[in-house]
Nucleic acid binder design. Sequence first.
DNA 1: GAGCACTGC
Length: 991
Amino acid sequence: KAGAEQPAAGPRAPVLLAAPSKAPCKPAVFIPVDRSPEIQEARLKLPILAEEQVVMEAINDNPIVIICGETGSGKTTQVPQFLYEAGYARDSILGKTCIIGITEPRRVAAVSMSQRVAKEMNLSHRVVSYQIRYEGNVTDETQIKFVTDGVLLKEIQKDFLLSKYKVIIIDEAHERSMYTDILIGLLSRIVPLRHKKGLPLKLIIMSATLRVEDFTANTRLFSAQPPVIQVDARQFPVTVHFNKKTPLDDYSGECFRKVCKIHRMLPAGGILVFLTGQAEVHSLCRRLRKAFPYQKNNTQCKVTCVPLLMCCFHLPSLSQTLPKIDLNNYSVLPPDEGDEDRDIDSDDDAAGSDLDLDLGDGDSEGDEKSDSSLPLYVLPLYSLLAPEKQAKVFRPPPPGTRLCVVATNVAETSLTIPGIKYVVDSGREKRRCYDRITGVSSFRVTWVSQASADQRAGRAGRTEPGHCYRLYSSAVFMDFEKFSAPEITKRPVEDLILQMKALNIEKVINFPFPTPPPTEALAAAEELLIALGALKEPPTTGRLNQQLAAKLSCPISPLGRVMATFPVAPRYAKMLALSRQHQCLPYTITIVSAMTVRELFEELDRPAGSEEEAAQLKGRRARFLQMQKVWAGQGPMQKLGDLMVMLGAVGACEYSGCTQEFCEQNGLRHKAMLEIRRLRGQLTTAVNSVCRDAGLYVDPKMKPPTEAQVTYLRQIVLAGLGDHLARRVQAEELLDDKWKNAYKTALLEDPVFIHPSSVLFKELPEFVVYQEIVETTKLYMKGVSAVEPEWIPALLPAYCHFGKPLESPPPSYCPGTGRVHCHRPSVFYRVGWQLPAVEVDYPPGIDRYKHFARFLLEGKVIEKLSSYSQCLLSSPLIMLKTWSKLQPRTEALLQALVQENCDNRDALVAAWKKNPKCNLPGIIGVGMGSSAWKSLRKGANPLTGLEPGGGTRAGGRAAARQRRPGGRGAGSYLQPESPFSPAEIAQLGER
DNA sequence: GAGCACTGC
């Protein structure tokens, strides 16, 4: 195994793009594994096994290796075993165990791969384990660990060097998931760092395609080009048939016709159809069921009518014992033969060999007629389908029927359906598209990439040779993009940027992304995080280009560190960070969980397949609408809007035990509710670990929030969704009918509307915040909550431009904070909406000193002074006059305050404390012009001799809590800053 | 007055 000297040789020499550097010869290590004979035999059939030596030599000689192999090469299950056997789970020097880590982009894959490898190696799951978001079975003995990519990213936050690992394998790197890309970027730096420390870490990147130039040709990523090893796949050949014509609209109808033909004319084998969405899937299912009815009770096999169909459809295990159908000798002439393009691979085959299986483009008649002689077992498949309904596709279809699965993209990567011989590919997919500037998303049906189409075709060759029918011409195919763009380039990246800043990567723009996100996306993310207070604000002075440079390299703030520990979107993390007031945390955790989990409510608006189903759907819709009203609460609570509905729904669901029945009856998606429960658990733990005294737990019998709490929750939501504020268009702006009931947002020119499914659809509050805008027929806001206008400047100062302090109401001294307050009018950024004047800190500057001096003289700052205010020679209001009008004594006071930076109580006390001998008290005395103050000249200690105003001197934090921005209705305002203590935040900073 | 593919912390 350690024969590193032997050059790789063999009939299929792997591609080595870079010559490996020779490493010093190490003694051979071999850890025995006790595999069962059956497993041993099965392994030997895997193509990767033939390459074990090559793979291990490359890994031995290089810190970073790329392995390319299609699905079926066995790389995911075998490479970890190679490494284990070669001793990579053991530290040769210390004799300790180390970990071989493998990342997967999906939870199910991490779990199932760990189970399979454990079984193959005959090892306990204590040794071969997994860790995913909510669960894992990792122990001290774990040596092979499968994780989801996000889990590894979190581990890097705790231990940047990943010191427990000796190897990291990034699996499915070709999928280019956001976390995979970031991990590769981070590991490109961690690997050399570990090398410097003398604790080398191996990185193996595994990809199904050969599109690895983003990794190999990117010198910023890897300065030395890593070797690429190519491994064969064990797949059955799939013949690809292109349509001659490409239907532009009715691809769904074309799918129908193609399935009909396959089913009528071609031998046994499951059919898999790729469409774009739920509605299409259901509609095609209905049509196919109508054309080939399958009665549950009538399982009698009717093959006699159809000589070409065999009884044993879709039973791969039995197919061995049945006569094999030779595809080349099989012959049925399609009705419109000669109408098609040639097979792409017909050049290699005997002429016309596969032409038989070409079925021609659509347009044949009579397909819609019900044909009871051909039972077809039609099943829908999409991600949001209930798991028990999804599971049906994995079971063999009833005897005498042919399986036909109508699926969305789930069947392309996430789920593998057994027994598929025919793939019908519409060539389209539905994608979520984001507007980079406005963040508005829309769903668009687009052509897939060539890689995607090939992946779909491959689904036909998993158990035997198969056929793929593409409902588009080869010319159209050639116009497809080769690969779909990496996720990181197409999505908002604020969550990612926050994670990176938490790793102290400040200049995000310099990060070695395999493919960087667009600069606008980075700028938008940085801007949002600054507005949320997660990043320190860049300087607004200095040279313009310096300012610009600083703009994309802001360091994380203490609040940002708190936010980064919550595994949710930054807007939601901000809500959590603000909720440690008025016992709001359990509610915010629930709302944030509900907003994070997609599609809480079941889709009940779909067209029904039968009258019976239609009646049932109608009943369920009515029931849901009724429940929605209940969950929306009463009176002022309704203003929390759709978020109140979410809170109510989760509360009610948990109260009833979160059963399948409750969910079904009330229009809730059971799977979503279970996910929310787990997320609540995770967030509760995360919050508890930040605030040690929170003592939170997930209460299934959580009481509804009080009216006051709902008001705070609305403010919390506003603070997180500040950039998602919308204002109803005013009557005078209603020039065009298209603005009827419309709202305006800061970033969009076009009108936006409250989505009709929202409980606030008819309410039309003046200001709302929304969870997201989705563009369909119009721009619709979803997840809507009403906002009071005076909250906006109080809670979103970052988005407001403030005017001069008002004279009425006059500036005042706030005993709670020891600062000068005033009322300032403001406008909302970009759109200039006038907002009510609210009480805020007096803006910094000379006037703030003047007001402070005045309140000081009036005895409001330090209580003991108040008894002397009678003795003053002139009114303290004199302080507010312009410099020139000041008398020498008042001028001296003002100058002294400015010199010591004392424009608030805390600063004054601090200055005094720092230098008890300073002449401030004396100057105050002079300033007041009263002989009664002479005693102060001696420098009496203000901490003992004088009581600051506002009664007991409260700690900074408690004092801050008393602050009520907005000033009216004490108790109804939220404290806008993070209510975490400096100690708590410091502790986070150490990580 | 409505139609959302797929994932990860």
